[in-house]
Structures are given as structure tokens and as C-alpha cells.
């Protein structure tokens, strides 16, 4: 019971840190997946007076990945009943060329503005429709969402650090006496601090293990995957190797840092 109590407070603090880190990772992944999704559905329409080869359009900006020339047949068919054949042939020749441009990623408003400017600077390009109003709103919403989560994670992180600092003072009090007594009998510093480091390493392992179980459960939850499906994205909630390694490294770093700080602040009582 006493031993569990010794571990409890640091484990709780470590678990909070690991939770905030993993939540931030999930949100970051979700936003990136959503941006990719938006980029796939997003395109710019360019209108030119004459045909421009695909390579020439791609050379305007590295952001442009695909160029599709829109077929004018559909528009002409609609006009078919009202015009005679001769006029239709003339219209086919004089009708401007429409291009649908797909981009490498979901662009920022600045990137869209720059790209529109570059396209319009090209000879024979008359108009560029970038749907900037819709795009701006979506992009701003994404940024707002990311900012909110960042602030949230940061707050948890700060509160947890404060908790750990409090814990540090308790640990300092708890371990100082034993370390001093061991020192009085000639124990080298590595031996007198061994219990402290063992305790912090065990706590890091326990905290990582708890986080592993919880996020593995969340990852397998149908409700979570349905939520992501509903916004049309697929996100890895918890990578059992990559994410766990990162969380374990963070837990180890924090707890060993805590133990080292105690060691540095240790004053021998004689």
C-alpha cells in the first residue's frame, strides 16, 4: 500500500503529460489528413484564350500537380438548339480554353494569392477562379481548431509540470534523509541515489504502460473510427511501435530529469 502511494502521484502526472502529447499527435494527424482530403477535392479553374501546353502550366508553380483541360462539348450541346451549325463551329473555335488545376497540398491563402497572380501574369490567361472565399473559411477553421487543441495541450502540460515540481519537493524530502544516512556510511552517490532512479524508471514504465492500454483501446473503438469516417478521413490514433516509443522516451526523460534534479538539490545532513 505504502509502495503504491509512493508511485501514484508521479504516475498520474506522467500519464497526464503522455495523454496531452498523444492527443496533440492525433489532432495534428487529423488536420493533416483533412488537409490532404481538402487538397484532393480542391482545384483552381483557369481560363485562357488559346491552348497552353500542360508542361507550360506546370512550370508556372511547383504547387500544380495535374492539369485537365475541360471539354467544351457539354456547353456547346446546351446551346445546340438555339444556334445553327455554322455558328456552332465558329463558337468552337472562339470559345476560350478551360483548365482545372489540382494542387500538391491544401494551400494557405497566401499561396493561393501568389499562384493566382502568377497564372494571370501568363500571356493569354484571362481569368482564374480560385474559390478563395470558401477556401479561406475552411482553412481558418482548421487553424482555429489546431490552435485550440495546442492551447489545451499546453495548459495540461503546464499544470502537469507544476504537479511534478510539487512532487519534486515531496520526493526531495522523502529521499534526502535516506540518501544522507547512506552517505554517512560511505555509500557512493550512485548507490545512494539508486532507489530514486529505480523508482522513477518504474514509474515511467507504469505510466507508459497505462497510456499504451488506454490508447490501444481508443484505437480499436468503433465509435472513434466512425467519427473520422464521418468527416471523410482515416487517422492512425495510436501507432503501437512509433507512438509508444515516443511516449516511453518522454516518460523516461521526464522522470529521470526529476530524479536528477533531486540529486542535484540533495544536501547531506550530518
Amino acid at each position: 500500500m505504502k509502495s503504491i502511494k509512493n508511485h501514484f502521484s508521479l504516475v498520474i502526472a506522467l500519464v497526464s503529460i503522455l495523454f496531452s502529447v498523444q492527443v496533440f499527435i492525433i489532432v495534428d494527424r487529423s488536420i493533416n489528413a483533412y488537409k490532404e482530403n481538402l487538397a484532393n477535392n480542391y482545384s483552381i479553374i483557369m481560363v485562357a484564350q488559346v491552348h497552353i501546353p500542360e508542361e507550360q502550366i506546370k512550370a508556372i508553380s511547383p504547387l500544380i500537380t495535374t492539369v485537365n483541360e475541360l471539354n467544351p462539348e457539354g456547353v456547346i450541346k446546351r446551346l445546340n438548339t438555339k444556334m445553327d451549325k455554322k455558328n456552332l463551329e465558329l463558337l468552337k473555335i472562339t470559345l476560350p480554353k478551360f483548365y482545372k488545376l489540382k494542387l500538391a497540398h491544401f494551400p494557405s491563402p497566401q499561396e493561393i494569392e501568389r499562384l493566382t497572380k502568377n497564372l494571370l501574369a501568363t500571356k493569354s490567361v484571362k481569368k482564374v477562379e480560385n474559390f478563395s472565399s470558401n477556401h479561406d473559411n475552411t482553412f481558418k477553421l482548421l487553424l482555429l481548431f489546431k490552435d485550440v487543441i495546442t492551447v489545451f495541450s499546453l495548459s495540461i502540460f503546464i499544470v502537469t509540470i507544476l504537479l511534478i515540481l510539487k512532487e519534486l519537493r515531496i520526493w526531495q524530502f522523502m529521499h534526502n534523509e535516506r540518501m544522507s544516512i547512506m552517505g554517512l556510511f560511505g555509500a557512493p552517490i550512485w548507490l545512494s541515489s539508486a532507489v530514486l532512479f529505480r523508482l522513477s524508471i518504474v514509474d515511467a514504465i507504469i505510466a507508459s504502460f497505462i497510456t499504451f492500454i488506454v490508447f490501444s483501446y481508443i484505437e480499436s473503438s468503433l465509435w472513434i473510427s466512425r467519427q473520422f469516417e464521418s468527416i471523410g478521413i482515416e487517422v492512425v490514433v495510436f501507432d503501437k511501435v512509433e507512438d509508444f516509443s515516443l511516449l516511453f522516451a518522454i516518460a523516461m526523460f521526464v522522470s529521470v530529469l526529476l530524479a536528477s534534479l533531486i540529486l542535484l538539490g540533495h544536501k547531506e545532513e550530518v
Partner: peptide, 25 residues
């Protein structure tokens, strides 16, 4: 030096007035 002092203390037995026992052991 700390190393030499540790060496000396390993060959001394000390009895304190306030015992100085490790409470959690």
C-alpha cells in the same frame, strides 16, 4: 576528497543520538 571520505566511512560504525534509521526500510 568525497571518494576518500566514503572509503573512511565504510570502515567506521556510527551510532547517532537520534538513531538515523531509514524509516521506509
Amino acid at each position: 576528497s568525497r571518494k576518500k571520505l566514503n572509503f573512511l566511512r565504510r570502515h567506521i560504525g556510527i551510532v547517532f543520538q537520534d538513531y538515523k534509521l531509514v524509516k521506509e526500510w
